[in-house]
Design a protein around this nucleic acid. Structure first.
Lengths: 177, 177
DNA sequence: TAAGTTTGTTTCAAAGTTGAACCAAGCCGT
DNA sequence: ACGGCTTGGTTCAACTTTGAAACAAACTTA
């Protein structure tokens, strides 16, 4: 079958998207690196832990919400652990699992870093688009993400609710990425 | 001044965006790595050269359109050169500049790889959003990108039109990223 | 319960990225 | 023509990411 090339509109959108996403990530990484001494992903690890019940999360669950590989997360947590911002803990119910726990120092760093980060995200993104566009963006991205993750883990049966699989309870969450 | 945290809508949009962009890039990188033996960025280098007049571009110009650092581009081109897909050439007008030139082999690889790539972009993105959303996406991304690049090079005087700075002439361009 | 499978995590080497430092070559004013 | 500034590109070490392989602890089933 002959390739369905992109229409001119699609091409423009695609190029704009590539450009925007690269520029945005770069800018955020730079800001966070300068003011927090860590790349965006590492910040997200802290932020997600901070929003989790008891400030701890299983490696796999964290990797899944962050949409990264387990291997990548292992590296990040190892580094954050070396810096004392996170600590590893063994899961009591499943000896295979390990939990990443946000330390007090990690919390402090996060609290010190969050305002600048949010400021940046605002300045670069939300201050530049209308509320209507915020909705559109969410809508678009949600759809894309759904298509991309569901592919293998099927929208099938809900995960059994064993204690160590409990999903995060509502929290403040103003810093999470 | 107290931080202006993200509203719930903004948070949802931000998270959705992060998730979608990570998943999307990963999927595209995987596809291209498998079927083309190179990451997305390297493909984009080939695609952009292919669309350039005479299939060649100054390193700086290429880096600028790709929104990456010169250093990163140097690495990519070095690798592509090793693989014979790109060749470096000295600029006749400015001895500092070097041009990246797409070789015949590079063209061949690109032509062989492009359909699969476009297919993927379609399947993961454009087949999942409405034409209206394509427009919205372009609009949003264009705005963000504008804000992010203009910051230092000011929207000021247009670059002088010396021969080796000539901007690309219209081409087919159905594969460019 | 032993064998086989799946799940959770880490390890390791190869690949790619970052940012600062460096070297030329052009540009400008004197 | 000389010094100083800017521009184009590369280099290098430190860091991060990738993906396959290795382990170990559950789970399943005969």
């Amino acid at each position: 079958m002959t390739t369905r090339w992109l229409t001119p509109e699609e091409q423009r959108a695609w190029r704009a998207y590539i450009a925007a996403s690269r520029l945005l990530e770069d800018a955020i990484d730079r800001q966070l690196q300068q003011e927090g001494g860590m790349p965006h992903l590492f910040y997200s690890v802290l932020a997600n832990l901070s929003d989790a019940p008891d400030r701890r999360l299983r490696m796999t669950d964290l990797a899944e919400t962050l949409k990264i590989t387990r291997s990548r997360l292992t590296y990040a947590v190892t580094r954050l652990e070396r810096d004392g911002l996170v600590r590893r803990e063994n899961c009591r119910w499943d000896k295979r699992s390990s939990l990443a726990v946000l330390t007090d120092e990690g919390t402090a760093v996060l609290e010190r870093t969050a305002p600048g980060h949010v400021e940046t995200v605002r300045a670069l993104l939300f201050d530049r688009i209308t509320p209507e566009q915020v909705r559109q963006l969410e809508e678009i991205c949600t759809g894309i993400a759904r298509g991309l993750q569901g592919e293998d883990d099927g929208a099938g049966a809900a995960t059994e609710d064993v204690p160590w699989r409990r999903r995060s309870t509502p929290c403040q969450g103003s810093t999470a990425d």
